[in-house]
Simulated scan of single mutants.
Amino acid sequence: MNDLHTLAARTPGLPCRTTDPDMWFSNYPIDRYRAARFCASCPLLAACREYGVQTRQEWGVWGGVDLTAVETYCGSERGHRMHRRAGEMPCVPCAEAHAVLVEKRRRKRLAEEHAKGGTVRGYDIHLQLEEPACAACRAARREESARRRAGALRGRGQPRTASVASRAAEPATGAPAGAQPLALTA
């Protein structure tokens, strides 16, 4: 496969070649933002992004991703999102920052569920937080399970009504003339 430089030399009309190339490596974030938007129409978008990530470029816009900003925000939730947009696994500081944010959101939601007196959703959040569920959330989960079991058992063992049984014996609409109905087993 050709490397990025060879592909870029052979491909006419690339945005980084037809506009101000300094924009891609500007000291001003607004210029790099504009450059990243120009990349959207580039036929080498994926190859350029892959090159920037694989060669660990720390400065500039590569394939529509401002890798300068990724380095600037590393260790934050924004850095985590930027890693994901760049198609790479987040670094340890960014992954930790994301985990802290997720746990904070879950704890806030859990407090809302506890304010309702404990809910099935609260039970699920306890599990996501890898902690034992409180008594109120466990009780809500038991009640929900009992309701589902009661609903699933309802109707079992009861004979089918005559109208349902007679409809099952009729050939389906659109069946060829003389088609025999299938025998249904209970």
Rank of each mutant, 00 (worst) to 15 (best):
H5C: 15
A8D: 05
R10Q: 13
P12Q: 14
P12T: 06
P12V: 06
G13R: 12
L14E: 08
L14C: 08
C16I: 01
R17H: 10
T18C: 04
T18S: 07
T19K: 13
D20H: 03
D22I: 00
M23D: 02
M23L: 13
N27M: 14
Y28P: 01
Y33L: 12
R34Q: 12
R34I: 10
A35V: 12
A35I: 02
A36D: 04
R37N: 10
R37S: 03
F38I: 05
A40C: 05
S41F: 01
C42I: 06
P43L: 02
L44D: 06
A47V: 14
R49E: 06
R49A: 02
G52N: 02
T55I: 04
R56G: 03
Q57M: 09
G60A: 07
V61T: 00
W62V: 03
G63M: 04
G64I: 07
V65N: 05
D66E: 11
D66T: 13
T68L: 06
T68S: 12
G75E: 04
H83Q: 07
R84W: 09
R85G: 09
A86S: 04
G87E: 12
G87W: 09
E88L: 03
C91G: 00
V92M: 10
C94T: 09
H98F: 09
A99E: 02
R105Y: 11
R106M: 15
K108E: 12
K108H: 07
A111M: 00
E112C: 04
H114L: 09
H114K: 13
H114R: 15
A115V: 08
G117L: 06
T119P: 05
R121D: 02
G122P: 00
D124R: 08
I125N: 01
Q128C: 14
E131D: 10
C134P: 00
A139S: 10
A139G: 07
R141V: 12
R142D: 07
E143T: 11
E143A: 14
E144I: 12
S145R: 15
A146F: 07
R148C: 04
A152W: 13
G155Q: 04
R156W: 15
Q158R: 06
R160F: 11
R160M: 10
T161H: 07
T161Q: 08
T161G: 13
V164F: 15
A169V: 10
A169N: 10
E170C: 06
G174K: 02
A175V: 03
G178T: 12
Q180F: 09
Q180Y: 08
P181L: 10
P181F: 13
A183N: 13
L184R: 11
